Amino acid sequence: MAYFTIFASRNHNHDLDGLIQEVFRDKFKISGSAEGTRQVEIQPKGWFNRGRITIRIADEDSDPAYFENNIPGMMGFYQAIPFEDGDLQHRVMMQISVINTMLAIETEKELREEEQRLFVQLAGKVDGICFLPDGTLLDRDGRAIVTPDGKSGPAEFRPRACTKKVRGEDRSTPEGLARKQRSLAYIKEKGIPLLETLPELPPLEELRVKSREEIARRAVALLIVIQYACDIAQDGDLRESREFVEEMLDKFGVKDELTAAERDLLEQAEPASRDAINITWQYEAYWALLWALGVLDELGLPVETCDCDFAINVVASCESFDEFLEKTALRRPEEIADEADKMYRLHWACVNERIKGQPAPAGMNESIVVERRRALFWMIGYRDEAWDDISMDT
């Protein structure tokens, strides 16, 4: 047996049977492809051409359990691969997060080059990516995206997501529309490209905005772990650093606030430099938390990195969590949601220019945008996503 899997993000799959017919009908007999069937049998024509091909089809509407059970595992697999290109890993993870269609292809004999060519052709028609059993990912044209050892292939890969998966059912509310219009006015004033059709964020009554204490605890825990990540990135004394971090987590009583990724970093015997660097960038997310807690007057455009010395001292000058909490005054939920909406649209502008091979507009730094968006979307409880899992679709 040989296996070849196609994953895609599609608004509908009514055309799958027809696409399979287009690819295989010249040299194969196809059965079981009537409307609504979830398995297609493909038999080579001719007496001596043995070797049946079976295509099993699943999508999120007909088989939600498959995606609930398997997509997290797929994300974990590629999260663990040591990508030589961190940005490529981010793009692969984004792609996996929006997958809602799977075509699992099984052949009775070893996969031949001609068969793989046809399978890649099918991937191109469904606008998907190809997964090989060893973990290699191919793009819709059959070019390698990444190999199991983390090496980048020749594919110039960009995630593709259907509007149904990314946006859900687009709808408008008076509150969401007013917020969107405020963001667009701000962005136009700055001369930054915008996309009028990006959807609105839900109204506050449909979100779960975090409390002042929840935000403060996340801020303190994050800041402490960032210090450890910085020591890793700078080849510091990790034993001493880890002891200091454990002491600070206990002192401020925020150990339970660590995310899975942060705990993993602290528990690694030999922490990966890339994991540490990713967390050090979250200084910018921490900066947004401080803004929401009223410690900063404004965030401004995401152009310059935050003042790390000030960021550290805000907490380091306190003897307890309660002392830090007393320094804070949570901004109105409307204000935090407005900033989240604005950052969402600024993120689109950065991605749009990057795709065109251009620098981010208005001098923005996309990494700062991403981390601010992480914090802001977490604070408003968008889709109730965990800190490590905030989606970055644009």
Score class of each variant (00 low, 15 high):
A292E: 06
A349R: 00
A8E: 12
T54G: 05
N365S: 15
S367H: 08
R332L: 11
R52L: 13
A216C: 06
R217C: 10
A269P: 10
G128E: 08
L137I: 04
F157Y: 12
H14K: 15
L301R: 12
G294N: 03
V92P: 05
V92S: 05
N365G: 08
F67A: 14
N313C: 03
E196T: 00
D307S: 04
E114L: 10
Q116N: 11
E114K: 12
R373L: 15
E334G: 10
Q282K: 15
E110P: 10
K151W: 00
T136Y: 03
M93E: 00
E284H: 09
H90Q: 15
K188N: 05
L346E: 04
E323C: 04
G253D: 03
L204Y: 03
H14N: 12
F24E: 07
E108H: 15
E214H: 05
R383Y: 10
E60I: 13
F77K: 01
G191C: 11
V225F: 03
Q121A: 13
Q39N: 04
I277N: 09
C130Q: 00
L122E: 07
K180F: 10
W348Q: 05
A219W: 08
I336C: 09
C162F: 01
Q116R: 15
Y186G: 00
L118C: 08
K251L: 15
E108Q: 15
R117V: 07
K165F: 01
E267T: 10
A375F: 05
A65V: 11
T173N: 07
A288Q: 09
I57T: 05
V166P: 00
N352D: 14
T5D: 13
